[in-house]
Amino acid sequence: MDKRRSKGDRTAYFSGVIDGRLLPDGDYTMVLEAVDERGRRERVEHAIALIDGDKEYMRIDNLSIWPNEFTPNRDGITDRVTIGYNLNKTATRVEVYLLDGEGTKYPVAEDKIREMGVPGRHEHDYDAGIDLGATPPMDDEYTVVVEAEDAVGNKARVEGTLVIKDGGVPRVEIVNGAAVFSPSVVPLGGTLTFTCTVKNIGVVPVRTKGPEPHTTYSTSENYNTLEEYEEPGIFRVGLDYEGNSFGRIYPFRWQLGTDKELTQIETDIGSETYLMPGQTVSVVGRLRIDDPPVKTAPYYWIGLIHEQVWIVQDRVEPTSISIGF
């Protein structure tokens, strides 16, 4: 240890570990050298023996990173990475992180299933922070680092590569939190129509799916009966109403814009439909009132749904509509 020291007594502690490895049992010579400002050197030696040392070094085996390229933007496609590895023995410290070219660390949360440091397989679920609404690291290639240390001080380190692309937090809004319903009086068997404007105010495209605006639902239908099933990560505008007995909220849902307005992007699951950053579209939804409601003037409202994530805007423009029956 080459450091400047002032005059006086000193105590040095030696654990037997050199460069992250415990020395094998045996006889060694400890050497202490000191050089003053004039270049005069003094050296002392002392015998030291290491016995009954831990003969098993710390190892991290079978590092896996899947997928090794991911897009943390909450569209439900390659939004997460699993980082897995095996520990050969108990570790007192385990650290998993991403390292960029400037040396900045981005920590990866602990294994949620197995206790930290126990021998065996470990898997970390990495989302780049988007589940908490945080902006992920910039698009780039990163080094995934796993470090472990045992009780003696033996250390191990393995590295892999992970590419982040198209990352960002999706941000969409129903403009002004407003919608227009018409007509205000609908006879049984008549059609209620709403119109709203939706804008992508974020920096990443947002995924959406049908049915297209202007599609008409019957009150006896929902998005499942139209075979437009819910999917994690997609955005749609939904219609709900007072007295809904479907067992699910917003049973009537529409795509954010028409197919002609939207952009097709190739993904790991095929071609998907996206509303691009800065793009504004009009969404018109229609509901034919075939079934008598629970009251003559129930409230209807719309919402912006990020499916299986959260309701971005809920109960937008609740409006009482008189139903004639």
Rank of each mutant, 00 (worst) to 15 (best):
R114V: 12
E115H: 04
E115V: 10
E115F: 05
P119W: 11
R121E: 12
E123A: 13
E123S: 13
E123T: 13
H124P: 07
H124E: 05
H124A: 04
D125I: 13
Y126V: 05
Y126F: 15
Y126M: 01
Y126P: 01
A128E: 09
G129E: 08
G129Q: 06
G129N: 07
I130N: 04
D131H: 13
D131Q: 13
D131N: 15
L132I: 00
L132W: 14
G133L: 10
P137G: 10
P137V: 08
P137W: 10
P137D: 09
M138T: 14
T143V: 11
V144R: 09
V144A: 08
V145M: 10
V146G: 03
V146A: 03
E147K: 15
E147I: 00
E149P: 00
E149F: 00
A151T: 08
N154D: 14
K155E: 15
G160R: 11
T161D: 09
T161M: 12
L162K: 05
K165W: 02
K165Q: 14
K165N: 12
D166M: 09
G167V: 08
G167Q: 07
P170D: 11
R171C: 03
R171T: 10
V172H: 02
G177F: 03
A178Y: 10
V185G: 00
V186K: 09
V186N: 08
L188R: 15
G189W: 06
T191H: 02
L192N: 05
F194A: 06
T195V: 14
T195K: 14
T195L: 05
T197I: 10
T197S: 14
V198L: 07
V198Y: 02
K199H: 00
N200P: 04
I201Q: 09
G202I: 08
G202D: 11
V204N: 11
R207Y: 07
T208Q: 02
T208D: 01
K209M: 14
K209V: 10
G210D: 11
P213W: 00
H214M: 04
T215L: 01
T216Y: 02
Y217A: 07
Y217L: 07
S218F: 13
S220N: 15
S220V: 04
E221I: 02
N224C: 00
N224W: 10
T225K: 15
L226W: 09
L226N: 01
E227D: 13
E228F: 12
E228I: 00
Y229K: 12
Y229A: 11
E230L: 14
P232Q: 05
G233L: 04
G233P: 05
V237S: 00
L239P: 03
D240N: 15
G243Q: 12
G243Y: 11
G243V: 07
S245D: 15
F246T: 14
F246H: 15
F246Y: 15
G247W: 04
R248S: 03
I249H: 12
Y250W: 07
F252N: 02
G257A: 05
G257N: 06
T258W: 07
D259F: 08
